[in-house]
Nucleic acid binder design. Structure first.
Lengths: 118, 118
DNA sequence: CTGGATCCACAATGATACTG
DNA sequence: CAGTATCATTGTGGATCCAG
């Protein structure tokens, strides 16, 4: 293995930067279920702004993790889907969100304990 | 499952925010190998500033993922280690860094293709 | 060695308005 | 519907100096 994320100049750092992004994780999670249109995505990911969603999708598309398909309907329909490359990543990303949901109680308890002792 | 990361106000979002952090991922990865002292950690995680490392460790400690042990040596020695709770997360985090290292080529190719067509 | 405190520059984000 | 453009604001990180 010649790449090492622990070296600053290593290109894998760029990839990790991309993955270690709250919104990217959520977008990939949604697209893993099925292809979704822009505004539907915006509705389903509570709290994301249209600007940030747009930026996130563009980055993911550039990295080859997400595909963008335009349909010439009126008005135009744009559908985002996960690519085969992106698919190889979704199980890991899903594990992250699942961990958050399963261990939130323990984390909240730890925080309370920490805050009381401080 | 009553928690849902796709809802903005859900506490799991806070956890995801913490995990979806480049530095937190790298710190957890290092601590998974063995307990490490502050400056050693700083040396091994290329590019992290002392301030950010300090902040990251404090957050991880507050969340109960990392423990901090002080030894009354001269000068003082502080050792950070992963907790049992943190241990349940490291396999997922490791998968993330591993994916980055294994798929960097594909991502870089996708980026070049994207940039040429744009 | 292990940080805390400060100052500062830049990036990220929200809000709003507008276009095809 | 699916975005882009702009601005105002905040946050975040880096650099530096200092202290227990």
């Amino acid at each position: 293995m010649e790449y090492d994320v622990y070296i600053q100049t290593c290109p894998t750092r760029l990839v990790l930067d991309r993955l270690a992004d709250k919104w990217a994780v959520l977008v990939l999670g949604k697209l893993d279920e099925q292809p979704v249109r822009f505004n539907q995505l915006k509705r389903e990911i509570d709290g994301i702004s249209q600007k940030v969603l747009s930026q996130t999708l563009k980055k993911l598309e550039r990295d080859g993790l997400v595909s963008r398909s335009v349909f010439a309907t009126v008005p135009v329909t744009v559908e985002y889907a996960i690519t085969p490359l992106g698919r190889t990543l979704t199980s890991t990303v899903a594990a992250l969100t699942r961990w958050a949901e399963e261990n939130i109680e323990a984390v909240l308890q730890a925080q309370q304990k920490y805050d009381r002792s401080a």
